[in-house]
Design a protein around this nucleic acid. Structure first.
Lengths: 362, 362
DNA sequence: AATTCTTCCGTGCACGAGCACATAATTCAA
DNA sequence: TTGAATTATGTGCTCGTGCACGGAAGAATT
């Protein structure tokens, strides 16, 4: 590593010792104005940049990060961010970063509260959280704020202004609705209808579902080259297959002109299985997330489009961003939207592969 | 950084000195079988993993990488890999990695030869190359092989078997043709025609254009739910706008049923401008690459789809892969296809943003 | 004038791995 | 059985940065 400017070089140039340079660099005080000036001039002139490697080695400290996510055993979606966090951890481990996982059930806000309390008591440097409960999420982040604990949000965005909010990594739900509408509209003819289907409990507590629906309807309002009618439905009890098939059948009978169905959650595969039972597979289906169950149907073109939420990347980038800010002291962007990947049978393999093998520094 | 197992810990556990452990780890020999056995047992038991940070600092060597690409001033596409290489360089700089750029004109194989000779003379540890000339590319890689110089290919893949071939980072051209066909077919009706348009000189010297065309036609052969006819055209002299407009007009007059045009290169914007002059903007257009000229038309829905070749990521990952193999001594995958991103007006902003700010370790 | 207290600055060790050199143990030859 | 050659092992310095400690110089107090 020749030619790289070292602290020692600055010290020589400025005619002081490396200790003084160090005090200037770290703003530790106890430096005379003249010495300070000479050091700063030397830093400027030689274009000094701290050697991160040596710095990390010398620091020899532990950066404690907590990750607070829904239980991955219950929903395959949440395995992906956890995987991404693990990958990122391997990339930054040698800098002294440790990560502890805390989990809660997706339907259980109390578990969220309990886990978040443990984190607050745990002397962490930063926390990565998926604040899927709006109220409890805000409460937790308020307390992080009080305690001076830095946090990164993934997947769900709770708008925040305080100093400790590092960044949000996730999707633009509204725009994903727009994109869904565009994709479904491609194959639809004049007079067709588009159906919005929420397969989730308590839809209107989930801001991102509301936003998706809004984007979807706005697209059709703004693009009126074909006249397409819209309607919205939802169904909660998806594990009751008969009831669900009945519901689908009745809805389609009422709306025989349906040309496309927008499933706002990751459960498009349930719809497809119902459609198949009913022998109504000609309608186009769009859903979210590259989970196994969906991919199976994408491969046979029964699901026509999936929008990828990049959950692995969400976890990966959240850790990398914490690392950049905490350890490398870089500024990071507050809102980081991941791309809305359009996945079809013809390009799915690459997204699935990428999930398997994110080719970054390990 | 507590609890991490160090060489010293292994030495103590095995009852030898850290020098002996070092000799075992680096297979330097001069270790008695018994000592070796004890050391290996200790490594196993304590699950030792080398501290990359400390290792890089101690190595204190320079890794010289050469990058051989077309001149970015001549084609905006090639600015992107160069940007990606720069980003990656910042991420690995402190490990002692240096990168020198060599450029050649896209139409000038002699410049390629000259530059590659300089690289061969330059004592590099690895070279990143876009071997867009098949013959000259193979010649160069043969000489790398003779000299023991490791190489990574981006963008264009020349199949190689030798030891020095590290990996290929780029696209699957055949599959991108398939995807293009699927996308254009979505909006087409029974009896429509799809047009393949090569806007490039010497098309049949460019393997990737041939592959794209093949994928495109294979899609329609394999999916015959609608009967769509296909035909192929090409035009070289794109900078002669009148001649090109004439050509487009004549072609469309001969094929009035054209519902979609597949532009196999990054020059879709030329087509769109010609169509506009002719007042024939209703036909769907698909092209490649998120360059400024294309994005302008994507935004107004005159280009309907762009397939992203991820040129920035190609450059970024090429360097990261060299780093992983050279410095960190990890195995890397030989063929790494990047995803085929479907970009439309509704999701373009995210891909453009990502190009601006790749959020990785800097 | 002698003392404490600041302010300023330099020296030296630590981090963990790599590697050169010195030294100890063993083998082999004469 | 002694000396040389070979093999095995340990010691200590290096990389660049961070930080603690201690000393010097000057200001403030008695």
């Amino acid at each position: 590593m020749k030619n790289r400017v070292r602290i020692k070089d600055i010290a020589e140039k400025a005619g002081v010792s490396k200790g003084t340079v160090d005090r200037v660099l770290h703003k530790r005080g106890n430096v005379s104005p003249e010495a300070r000036k000479k050091v700063l001039a030397a830093i400027e002139e030689l274009d000094y940049q701290r050697n991160i490697i040596a710095s990390a080695l010398a620091y020899n400290r532990v950066w404690k990060i907590a990750a607070l996510l829904p239980r991955p055993e219950e929903d395959p979606f949440w395995q992906q961010p956890k995987l991404g966090i693990g990958r990122a951890h391997r990339a930054v481990r040698d800098y002294g970063v440790t990560i502890d996982f805390y989990h809660f059930a997706e339907a259980n806000a109390n578990e969220f509260i309990t886990a978040s309390q443990e984190i607050l008591d745990g002397e962490y440097d930063a926390v990565l959280v998926a604040p899927i409960f709006a109220k409890e999420g805000h409460d937790f982040l308020d307390r992080c704020q009080d305690k001076g604990l830095k946090y990164v949000q993934i997947n769900t965005y709770l708008p925040r202004e305080d100093e400790n909010f590092m960044c949000y990594i996730g999707q633009d739900s509204y725009q994903s609705g727009m994109l869904a509408a565009k994709l479904l509209s491609l194959g639809m003819a004049e007079g067709n209808a588009a159906m919005i289907l929420h397969l989730e409990k308590a839809v209107y507590n989930s801001m991102h579902l509301v936003e998706k629906e809004k984007g979807f309807t706005d697209f059709f309002n703004q693009n009126s080259d074909k006249s397409i009618s819209l309607f919205q439905t939802s169904f909660e009890d998806i594990f009751n297959k008969d009831a669900f098939a009945n519901f689908v059948e009745k809805t389609l009978d009422q709306h025989p002109e349906v040309g496309g169905i927008f499933v706002t959650t990751s459960r498009a595969y349930h719809l497809v299985e119902a459609l198949e039972r009913l022998g109504r597979s000609q309608v186009k289906v769009l859903g979210f997330d590259l989970i196994k169950e969906n991919l199976k149907h994408l491969e046979t073109d029964r699901i026509h489009f999936l929008i990828n939420q990049n959950p692995l990347k969400q976890g990966y980038l959240a850790i990398i961003n914490i690392f950049n800010q905490l350890v490398l002291k870089k500024d990071v962007q507050k809102i980081q939207y991941l791309p809305l990947d359009v996945v079809m049978r013809e390009n799915m393999q690459y997204y699935v592969n990428v999930e398997e093998e994110l080719h970054l520094i390990i």
